[in-house]
């Protein structure tokens, strides 16, 4: 994941501004993840592999996604963890 602060060594005011920005961005992202729960999500993986699954949850570092009914090329996996490093992008409809 990304380093916690780009503004190390900067003054307190700058740090506060950066933290405020981080808060706004993160809250919005978490609401996005929350709204994905139980939705069908298409994952675009490396090597142009596309799989579909029902989204469950993500860990706080966004390293793994927990999904259900993962449709893989060799069958349906009832429960699975997807490594985020293997994912390029994912899409879903609200």
């Amino acid at each position: 994941s990304v380093s916690t602060s780009a503004a190390s060594g900067a003054d307190a005011e700058e740090l506060q501004k950066e933290q405020d920005a981080r808060t706004v961005l993160r809250e919005s992202f978490l609401r996005c993840l929350l709204s994905m729960t139980s939705k069908k999500v298409q994952f675009h993986m490396h090597e142009k592999v596309k799989v579909e699954a029902t989204f469950g949850a993500s860990d706080i570092d966004v390293l793994n996604f927990q999904v259900s009914d993962l449709h893989t090329p060799i069958g349906v996996q009832k429960e699975a963890l997807i490594r985020c490093q293997d994912v390029i992008s994912f899409t879903f409809d609200t």
Binding site: S1, V2, A21, V24, L25, S28, F29, D61, V62
Partner: peptide
Amino acid sequence: LTVDPVSAS
């Protein structure tokens, strides 16, 4: 909409 500050997604 947003950029996740943790993963830059």
